[in-house]
């Protein structure tokens, strides 16, 4: 009799637990005594993202949190594992730089369900209901400005090359589309080669050397980030063409801003990693102190940096505003 009753009770207890777990969508994992913030970055193999992660860590630490930085190494599986870890360990908030606009939504949703607020930095996710707020760099508009300046500098006719970043990354295409929304309006501007160099300086050097073999007479190169612009410039110097080919980058890396001042690279789009990281850390702090009034998206403008204004920029920002 007793034996039978225990095997009846077991399924009932299980059902009750299933119900409780299901209703606990916004329940929170027990928090550590000192609140901890996780900074999850798409990759720390690029100095720009290192600045983003370090600044987020620095500001969150100043605000009184224990901070751990996670490197997703551009791998959505690693990113998902970081979120599992963060949720299980009871972090208070996540400052997040996603690897994939669609693929990262599920991770943010899991954190939300566990009661952990997520603040996206630089890159957006294609969902407006999961992250508390998204502090985003407007890559498309930044490259529209860069495209306009490109036409001013190169003229309405000429031959150019485009080096793309990672082809699976949204920012690669936002930048390329912004740029082409301008230059494609000028039929005299002919793109003789478009290749990916994965946002990587060494690969850009290699790709550019090959392109120059097939297309020795080009007027300009548009690069989807500054690391590639540095690689391209290096290839042009080696080929003795650095004076005749105009190079354009994107990011606002310090070494490129320096070369713009020296007249060696024409322009870049300055993103503001420090401003975005600081805004994300401050937003997380406000949220954890009870504030719930956040815009879903906070666009951060990209500034065009060229030789005439390069002195106003440096250290990943504008000198008079950061």
């Amino acid at each position: 009799m007793h034996r039978t009753s225990s095997w009846i009770i077991l399924p009932l207890v299980l059902l009750l637990l299933i119900g409780i777990a299901g209703c606990g969508g916004s329940s929170s994992v027990k928090r550590a005594a000192t609140p901890r913030i996780a900074v999850i970055i798409s990759t720390l193999n690029n100095p720009w993202f290192v600045v983003l992660g370090d600044t987020a860590k620095q500001h969150a630490t100043q605000l009184g949190y224990e901070v751990v930085v996670f490197d997703s190494q551009n791998d959505p599986a690693k990113e998902a594992a970081h979120f599992e870890n963060v949720i299980a360990s009871g972090y208070a908030a996540v400052l997040f730089n996603p690897t994939d606009a669609d693929g990262s939504i599920a991770n943010v949703r899991r954190a939300k369900q566990a009661g952990i607020p997520v603040f996206c930095m630089d890159r957006e996710i294609n969902d407006t209901e999961t992250a508390v707020s998204q502090i985003l760099s407007d890559n498309y508009s930044g490259c529209v400005d860069l495209g306009r300046y490109f036409v001013k500098q190169v003229g309405e006719s000429g031959k150019y090359v485009e080096l793309l970043g990672l082809v699976g990354d949204n920012n690669t295409w936002n930048r390329s589309r912004g740029f082409h929304s301008v230059v494609d309006r000028y039929p005299g501007l002919q793109m003789v080669a478009q290749q990916s160099a994965d946002f990587d300086r060494a690969k850009a050097l290699e790709v550019m050397e090959a392109i120059l073999q097939a297309n020795p007479a080009i007027d300009a190169v548009f690069c989807g980030n500054d690391a590639m612009a540095m690689g391209v410039y290096q290839a042009l110097v080696a080929a003795g063409k650095d004076k005749q080919v105009k190079v354009f980058g994107f990011d606002g890396a310090d070494d490129v801003v320096k070369l713009i001042r020296e007249g060696k690279i024409v322009a870049t789009g300055m993103q503001f990693p420090k401003l975005m990281a600081r805004t994300a850390a401050e937003s997380a702090d406000k949220y954890l102190k009870g504030d719930r009034d956040f815009p879903q998206k906070i666009p951060v403008a990209v500034h065009l940096v060229h030789q005439a204004n390069a002195d106003k920029y440096g250290d990943y920002g504008r000198k008079d505003t950061e």
Partner: peptide, 9 residues
């Protein structure tokens, strides 16, 4: 004037 977001036009 009006502006959108942070640090822009």
């Amino acid at each position: 004037s009006r502006s959108v977001g942070v640090g822009g036009a």
